[in-house]
Design a protein around this nucleic acid. Structure first.
Lengths: 247, 247
DNA sequence: CGCTTGATTGATGCCATTCAACATGGGTGG
DNA sequence: CCACCCATGTTGAATGGCATCAATCAAGCG
C-alpha cells in the first residue's frame, strides 16, 4: 500500500486538499441528486457556507479508518472506495461511491472505514460537527440521509451473500453485470472499468490472479470480450446472469 | 428449510401472529432503548395506537425477501435473523437482531431480506405506510432511526471484512468473541449460544462441518471449552483475540 | 426403546491461493 | 521517436484449506 507515501507527501487530510473557494451551489452538477436536493435555496446557501469545495487526486486517502471523525462530504465528481483492513494488511473494499453520493459518518466520533479516491475527485466538504448541527435542524436533509443510508445498508447486505456464499466465477460474473448496469458503454458496447484488478479482487474477496483467470475463462467462453487493461464488453448478458447465479 | 411448512401452517405473516391487543407502552421493557425512546408521552401514545403487539414462534418467518413491504416492527423480546439466499438455496445471514432493535424497511416498497425468529419473540408491529407517515412528521423518531441505521451499516461493513478476507479459524474466533461481548456468562463463565451450528455457519459463510472442526480444534488448544450443543466458555480471551486477527 | 434431529468425525477431491515466471503497455528521458 | 523501465496483468505449477459426501455419535421425545 502506498498510503504511507500519500500521507508523507500530502499531509493528513483535512488540512490538505486544495480548496476551490468561491464556488456556489448554482452550477453544481449534483445539486438535485445529492442529499441537499430538497433544501430550500436559502437553506442550501446556509449549508454551502458551512462547507467548501476541494479536489483530491487518484490514490489519495481522504479519511482513515479509526481516526477522529472530522469531516463528511458530497461527492461532486469522481469515484472513491471505502475500505477496511486486517492488522496484517488484507484489505476488503466495503463500498464504492460515485458522483452525488455522500461520504463520511455523521453523528459519530470515529471514522469507521477509510475513504480513498480511485480517480481524481471533487468533493463538497463539511466539518462534521457543523454538518451534524445543520442536519438536526433540517428534517428534509435528515430524511434524505436516512433514505440513502437505508439503501446503502440494503446493497451492503446483498453484497454479503456474494462474499460469503458465491464462488469466484459467480463473483466475477456478478461484478461485471453490476458494472454493466452502472457504466455507460461506448458505441461498440465496450465499458471502461474504473477499477484495477487488485481493486476488483478487494471488492470480491478473492485474489488478483483468480480475477484474471475468471475473466480470461469468460472470454474463452465468448461471454465477454476484453480489450486492454480496463476495457470489457458484455457479449452475452443472459449467459452472464446465469453464471452469476451459479449455472 | 421448513419455511414452506410455516407458511402453510400459519398463513402469510401480516394476518398471522397472535395479537396481544390492549398492551400499551407503560410496561414496555424496551421503551427507552428502542427508536421510540425520544418521543413525548402523547406522541408515543399515538404511535402505539398505529401498531399492535404480536408474538412469533422460533422458526417462524416474519418477512420474506422480495415481498411487498407491509410492516416494520420493534423487537420487544427475543432474537431474529435477517437473511438472503441464492436461487439454489445457499443462505447468508446478514444480521441478527435482539430486544430493542428495529426490523423492516421503512420508506421502501420491497422487503430486502427475510426476517426469521430464532427464538420465540415479541414484536411491536406497525403497518409500514402508517409508520412512514408518522416518522416523516416526527424528527426525533427519524433521527433515532438514522442513528440506528448508520450503526447497522458500520457493523455490516465490518462484517464484510470477515466474510471476504478471514480464514475459517479467524471467522470462528471472531464470532465467539462477538458472542462473549453480547451475552452474559453464568457464574462458571459459560455462555449459551442463541444459534445452532448451521446458523453460525450461515453467519460466517462457511459450512457446518468447518464450524464444528474449528470449535473442537480451539477446545483441544485449551482456548475455549464446549459443553453440550450450545454451551461455550471462553477460557483464554487473549489467545482468541490473537487467533481472530490471524495469529 | 426406536426414531429423529443436530453435532462430530473421517476420507476424499476440488477450487482458490500461493509462489513464481513471463507478458504487456503506459510513461519517461535520452 | 525509440528504448527502456516499472507497474500492472496474465499464465503456470504446486499446495492447502475448505467443501463435500458419508458414517458415527449424542440427545431429546414420543
Amino acid at each position: 500500500m502506498d498510503m504511507q507515501f500519500d500521507l508523507a507527501q500530502n499531509g493528513a487530510f483535512p488540512t490538505v486538499p486544495r480548496p476551490c473557494p468561491g464556488q456556489t451551489c448554482d452550477g453544481c452538477t449534483v445539486r438535485d441528486r445529492a442529499i441537499c436536493a430538497d433544501l430550500s435555496p436559502t437553506d442550501r446557501e446556509t449549508l454551502s457556507r458551512i462547507g467548501r469545495r476541494v479536489t483530491v487526486h487518484a490514490g489519495q486517502t481522504v479519511m482513515w479508518e479509526g481516526d477522529d471523525n472530522m469531516v463528511v462530504a458530497n461527492v461532486v465528481d469522481g469515484t472513491l472506495k471505502l475500505a477496511t483492513s486486517t492488522g496484517d494488511g488484507r484489505e476488503q473494499i466495503v463500498g464504492v461511491v460515485y458522483a452525488s453520493d455522500f461520504i463520511g459518518r455523521p453523528f459519530g466520533a470515529r471514522t469507521p472505514h477509510s475513504v480513498t479516491a480511485l480517480t481524481d475527485a471533487r468533493l463538497c466538504l463539511f466539518p462534521r460537527r457543523a454538518f451534524d448541527g445543520f442536519a438536526r435542524n433540517h428534517g428534509a436533509l435528515q430524511h434524505r440521509l436516512l433514505q440513502r443510508t437505508l439503501d446503502d445498508l440494503d446493497r451492503t447486505r446483498d453484497w454479503m451473500l456474494l462474499l460469503g456464499r458465491k464462488t469466484a466465477r459467480e463473483k466475477v460474473a456478478t461484478f461485471l453485470l453490476d458494472m454493466g448496469r452502472r457504466l455507460r458503454p461506448d458505441r461498440t458496447g465496450m465499458i471502461d472499468l474504473p477499477l484495477s484488478r487488485q481493486q476488483i479482487a478487494d471488492i470480491l474477496g478473492i485474489t488478483i490472479e483468480t480475477v484474471s483467470r475468471q475473466m480470461t475463462d469468460l472470454k474463452r467462453q465468448g461471454v465477454i470480450d476484453l480489450c486492454g487493461r480496463r476495457g470489457v464488453r458484455l457479449v452475452d448478458g443472459a449467459a452472464l446472469e446465469a453464471l452469476a447465479e451459479g449455472a
